[in-house]
């Protein structure tokens, strides 16, 4: 039965129209995400993956096609987005940031407090809850951002390269933390990244995207057992092969794009 499907995207396209040129950001995107599945959208920068996520997050309207997100429990919000590091609101304390979603949907006070406190402790920000974002590090800000989304308790989490701005060590730590929080909630996740390692570590399934106009060109099932740890994923020879395979694809996508750009240069240049 198809009732297990949580997100269904059909022939989705987005065109950014300007006076003299229109850019086809994504074209004819089709995919489905199952309930409780962790899916990574992996592609080179500029492939329109953020545009796709913004459409699903309700921040952008598609130009063509349709998408559907099945809202199971009406008491919970459908989706929440985890933004990049600067999505933490500077004039709210860490605590207020984490409670933001619950406050916006006017959840009962005791539920707000309970969930906020739980996730503050969960991401290790309890001692820092009264501080402002300007007083904490980038890694801690991203923890707050993750806690804010999980505290809001949506059915679907949309993540827009949440760890891209972090240094390596922080990134690894947060990836594992994300996995451990996710494993206890089993929410449906659509995660955008340009990092192959990240996609291999986190996802059940990887959707590979080509560069502009962005389309999904391949799909990879990652059937590693969970819970996963960075060390075990890294040392798995099968994952090494997958890495190379994906890398080749991305290389082609990027080079193909460059080649296209070169041939389209006007002749006068030479």
């Amino acid at each position: 039965m198809s009732s297990d499907i949580k997100i269904r995207v059909h022939q989705l396209s987005k065109i950014f129209f300007r006076k003299n040129s229109s850019v086809h950001a994504i074209r004819d995107i089709n995919f489905e995400v199952k309930n409780g599945e962790f899916v990574c959208l992996l592609g080179p920068s500029g492939c329109g993956k953020t545009t796709l996520l913004r459409i699903l997050a309700g921040l952008e309207k598609p130009s063509g096609g349709s998408y559907e997100m099945i809202h199971g429990d009406r008491n919970k919000p459908l989706q929440s987005m985890i933004f990049q590091e600067k999505g933490v609101i500077p004039w709210m304390t860490v605590e207020e940031n984490v409670a933001f979603g619950l406050r916006m949907r006017h959840a009962p006070k005791n539920e707000t407090k309970e969930r906020t406190d739980y996730y503050l402790k969960k991401v290790g920000l309890w001692e820092f809850r009264k501080l402002y974002p300007s007083e904490i590090s980038g890694g801690m800000k991203q923890r707050a951002s993750i806690a804010r989304a999980f505290a809001n308790d949506p059915e679907i989490l949309l993540m827009d390269e949440p760890f891209a701005a972090l240094d390596e060590q922080n990134k690894y730590i947060l990836q594992e933390e994300l996995l451990s929080i996710w494993e206890e909630t089993k929410k449906t996740v659509l995660f955008i990244t340009h990092s192959i390692d990240e996609a291999l570590l986190l996802s059940d399934r990887i959707l590979l995207m080509s560069a502009q106009p962005g389309t999904i060109v391949r799909e990879k099932i990652i059937d590693l057992p969970r819970p996963r740890k960075i060390a075990s994923v890294r040392s798995n020879p099968k994952m090494g092969k997958e890495f190379v395979d994906i890398w080749k694809h991305l290389q082609e996508a990027v080079n193909g794009n460059l080649k296209g750009a070169t041939t389209s240069l006007p002749n006068e240049v030479y």
Binding site: L59, M81, I89, W91, F100, G101, M104
Partner: peptide
């Protein structure tokens, strides 16, 4: 920063909440 407008929108802020939680403190 437009990202805070996005955050407010994505987390379902009503216009009254947007005014008091984003526009007012952000412009302060």
């Amino acid at each position: 920063d437009p990202i805070f407008v996005d955050v407010a929108k994505n987390y379902g802020a009503k216009s009254k909440d947007y005014f008091f939680k984003i526009a007012l403190p952000g412009s302060l």
